[in-house]
Design a binder for these strands. Structure first.
Lengths: 121, 121
DNA sequence: TAACTGTACTATGTGTGTTAGTACAGTTAT
DNA sequence: ATAACTGTACTAACACACATAGTACAGTTA
């Protein structure tokens, strides 16, 4: 379920965070689901427990998960609202990227076509 | 012309690269234009010459500029093709971002509206 | 009680970014 | 030729983030 790319320049803890969020968006992880325990995850993907802990702390901080000592790390009950507002926060980044692409000579239609393609899936 | 944000987590050399590219896209910098010399830039924005050199090397590597010992660092003659193909290389990133936003509950129209807004400027 | 869970430390090694300083080589104007 | 500029190429040192290693503590569950 979780895969780490050691060649990537993206920090391992960040790869874990991004994958967890992606699994949430795609419905692989749902509200209340339990993530593998820190020690389980350690043996699953072969990274240090501290690195896993850092990832879980970050997920907690973002409201994606809620960790409870003794129980585990669980996907938030209101995860869809959390992801939605996170997405809204990324719209300025989206606009910046669009501006960059348009200014570089990419046609408007090329971008809207990509949106159509993604939406229709 | 060049501004460095020391609070940003983005490396200084990368900030310089990004700003140079943005000035190119917006027509502030044009083919054949000369960038400030490394030593000039040092006093302009108060960072180490080595950091400027690193930024200029990266711009050269990307084909944005051509540095000539004794003369300076100049915007490439075929800069528009360079920027265009760089933009094409970023389309997968664009698609990933679109997918993430759509999956998070952002409406297709919200994204196309942003594209329209940016394009019409 | 035993076995699990997350949490909180300290210490260490590694890589990257930045600064500092020096030296060398090519270009331009005088 | 000389002076003053240009980019280039190093070595050294420091700071910071990431990751690993190890230990200990506290809450939960069977």
């Amino acid at each position: 379920m979780f895969r780490i790319d050691n060649q990537s320049r993206t920090p391992v803890f960040e790869q874990i965070v991004k994958q967890a969020e992606e699994y949430v968006r795609t419905g692989i992880l749902n509200p209340g689901d339990k993530l593998p325990s820190i020690r389980e995850m350690t043996s699953l993907i072969g990274v240090n427990p501290n690195t896993i802990q850092k990832a879980y702390n970050e997920l907690d901080r973002r409201g994606v998960t809620i960790s409870v000592a003794g129980k585990g790390c669980f996907i938030s009950k209101n995860i869809s609202e959390v992801m939605k507002s996170a997405a809204i926060g990324k719209l300025p980044e989206f606009e910046r990227l669009v501006k960059e692409l348009i200014d570089s000579g990419i046609a408007e239609k090329e971008l809207t076509d990509i949106i159509k393609k993604v939406s229709s899936k």
